[in-house]
């Protein structure tokens, strides 16, 4: 499936997401099962599968990682964590250090330090996205150039996972605070 074609948008990383969201909404309005409650079985089936496809396309396109994965796949490259090249030693070292610092801050329940770390990783995340934005801006980019971008996807996964973990830690601390009042 080409999620960009399904939504009728250009195949690129840099998207105006509010506009794409609006497009998704308009397509949903045209296809949602509620609009076909009275229709015959085959029409219900056809519109339902199209509605599912539209929702899937929006789910893929709205998140930077899945959007990038779709762009690589459409360029004929196989991505996914098991297929991508191993991350560089440099990236692994940096990730380990960050994780250690996060563990320390978590143990001390130091929300300020956690926030600062998250800010640093978030800046790196934005940097990685910028590389993808530039790399996928030119529709006629050569395969070799696109292939060179694959490690950036790996970086993005690292950053995302780290930020998710920060989010979970913050939730856990907030929960513990409430439990302490209980």
């Amino acid at each position: 499936m080409d999620p960009f074609a399904t939504l009728g948008i250009e195949r690129r990383f840099d998207l105006d997401l509010p506009a794409v969201e609006k497009r998704h909404r308009e397509l949903s309005r045209a296809l949602h099962p509620d609009k076909y409650a009275d229709a015959g079985a085959s029409e219900r089936k056809a519109t339902l599968s199209k509605a599912v496809e539209v929702n899937e396309a929006w789910r893929v396109v709205r998140e930077p990682i899945t959007r990038a994965e779709a762009l690589f796949t459409l360029a004929g490259l196989t991505v996914g964590e098991r297929n991508e090249p191993k991350p560089s030693g440099e990236l692994l070292m940096a990730a380990m250090e960050l994780r250690e610092t996060l563990e320390e801050a978590k143990a001390k329940r130091d929300l300020k330090a956690i926030e600062k770390l998250a800010g640093e990783v978030d800046a790196k995340r934005r940097g990685a996205e910028e590389k993808l934005r530039a790399g996928f801006a030119d529709g006629s980019a050569k395969r070799a150039k696109i292939e060179a971008l694959v490690p950036v996807l790996g970086e993005l996964r690292f950053h995302k996972r780290f930020l998710d973990e920060v989010s979970a830690i913050e939730d856990a601390i907030a929960e513990a605070d409430v439990a302490a009042q209980d």
């Binding site: 939504l7 009728g8 998207l15 506009a19 497009r23 308009e26």
Partner: peptide, 12 residues
């Protein structure tokens, strides 16, 4: 829906 006949401000 894609032409945006209902809404004409989809700019990409």
């Amino acid at each position: 829906a894609i032409e945006g006949r209902r809404v004409d401000d989809v700019e990409l």
